[in-house]
Design a protein around this nucleic acid. Structure first.
Lengths: 150, 150
DNA sequence: ATAATTCCTACCATGACAGTCGGGATTCTC
DNA sequence: GAGAATCCCGACTGTCATGGTAGGAATTAT
């Protein structure tokens, strides 16, 4: 029951893209710098995010990535799903589940529980957008700006 | 963001113990039989559940395990926690988190999100008890009893 | 005694995670 | 056109959790 640091990294990268939205593409070298994350690893994650349709890429000298749509239209669930695959506590409640795969299907008492759990997780993650994370960030920075200068 | 099949097995075992509650200890050999799970693996899980204080064990010929307290006083969260450790999407919101371990602490905008997520998961899992799972099970069995005979 | 049980430790195979590395393709700038 | 900055891609690696298996020791009812 945990979010991988992979997805966490992806989310941090996405908030950087969100901050830069509208001001041209942001390179992952820059993201690596401000977030203190390994460049080569971010490259892989960025590719996944692009293939997942969350960002667009621009190659060449002033290239980089930018959000495929405004930050208030990308939820944390979108990001986590692209990086970790569908959020689902057990296979039998995932979207692509084929009826009958689980032999216990008819007699399973806990399926209802897993469905409630999935819905609950999805709700929390889909209610928060990148825009809100960025807003919270600015708020934090405005209160304690000295911290960020190290 | 998934529950391990280990925890799932543990939960299935616990519901068997719940069904047998009051009628003496239930052996894991029996659990393995009715749930079609590997015996040797269940042994390990049963030990964990015992060390976690959820069941009591009786050795010897008519030995086995029985719930340490009534089924309506053991939640799914109890079981999952004993088997998987604390449910926590990221380290910084877990119970044993030491303030300052995460360098981003002051500037982290997503911590609030993870806290909401944890609370949401905990709520769902702690609201369901073994007693409810057993009750649901009986209901299912009474509706479609033919299924279980194969 | 012996059979049924829990208990305990060690072992193992597989796959995910969290990266690193090296090079190729593209595009801007000079 | 050369060079630098960038994205793109595949291969490789070390560590750890998962999902088991195996063997034997301790305990207890019959």
């Amino acid at each position: 029951m945990r979010v991988s640091s992979k997805a966490h990294y992806g989310l941090r990268m996405m908030t950087e893209f969100a901050k830069a939205y509208g001001a041209g593409p942001l390179s992952i070298a820059e993201v690596a710098r401000v977030e203190h994350l390994p460049l080569a690893y971010l490259e892989q994650l960025a590719s996944q995010l692009r293939r997942g349709g969350l960002v667009d890429s621009t190659r060449g000298v002033h290239g980089g990535y930018s959000l495929a749509r405004p930050a208030d239209q990308i939820s944390v669930l979108d990001v986590v799903t692209v990086i970790e695959g569908e959020v689902s506590p057990v296979e039998c409640v995932s979207h692509g589940y084929v009826t009958g795969t689980c032999q216990r299907e008819g007699e399973c008492a806990s399926r209802g529980l897993w469905i409630r759990l999935k819905q609950s997780i999805d709700a929390v993650l889909s209610q928060t957008t990148l825009a809100e994370l960025v807003a919270d960030q600015s708020l934090i920075d405005s209160i304690a700006p000295a911290e960020t200068t190290r």
